[in-house]
Amino acid sequence: MSQANTMSRQDRRALRKAEKLRDKAANELPPSLRPNKFVKALTILVLVIALIYFTFPIYWAIIASTKSPSQLTNSNGIWFAVGLDELPDAIAKNYAGLLGWTKGKFWRWVLNSLIYSGVSAVIGTVVAVMAGYATAKFRFRGKGVIIGVIMASMLMPAALLTIPQYSIFNAIGLDNTMLSVIIPCCVSPFGFFLGRVYAQSSVPDELLEAARIDGAGEARIFFTIVLRILAPAMVTIFLFMFVATWNNFLLPLMMLSSTDLQPVTLGLYGMVSLATFTDRGALMMGALLGVLPVIILFLFLQRYWKAGLAAGAVKG
């Protein structure tokens, strides 16, 4: 303490500088691994071109969502048509247009999407983790066959199932209900695969044995111990299933005829396929508002989807 006090300002500055240098050196590559300037410039150029390709359509959609039909044709495509001070009015106008075109049902559609994705992802995640845990930690007859069948179904073009699914739901009078979208979205072979991989790698057998010796029942072990350990895996599975349902188009297109039940993707498609449709700016507004929940979810849960992709890459 006294030493710190007696240290002059200059000394402290020197110390900080030395620390900074040390940090930098620790992160720095050995000289032999350092790229030359030309390679570096070229790499950055390629990465930036790719960046423009991936983000430009989204940028354009944001700009377009503030424009009227005539401004879309006549004004500069890559910047707002009106001054920044008039922007709130332009946005309000297109928002009103969106609600008008959708007959006030826009937020109902977003809510529908949230219900479909949320409910099916919650059920699907729990069910997939249970099954993954069962195949990872228990021996039972038929296990090999079941794992094989589920894994093989990952290669099944799932959209093909939609036609007989519709036919069945129609026969039992369940088509055009929320259940007709939720039930088919509850099953994810990929979710099962992730649940199995995580249960194998992160649930220790000793822990299960110890709990059994303490007299805990299997259900209690699963719900109080295993689920807690597998919580991160469950977030990952939830996220992937949520997005898959949110993005599904063919299933609701076949199952639903009532506009009150449509998810937001189907609603926007209905808008763009209207013969009288003209207001692209309002539609872009709807498109952006309709993807916002998914984007927010992805931003906040970054480490979970990265974990899921890593499992797919390394184990796959």
């Binding site: 069910v127 099954a131 069962a134 039972f140 296990k143 099953v187 099962f192 299997e218």
Partner: peptide, 9 residues
Amino acid sequence: TGWTFMVPF
């Protein structure tokens, strides 16, 4: 037990 956990899926 294994089958019980498998059944819902």
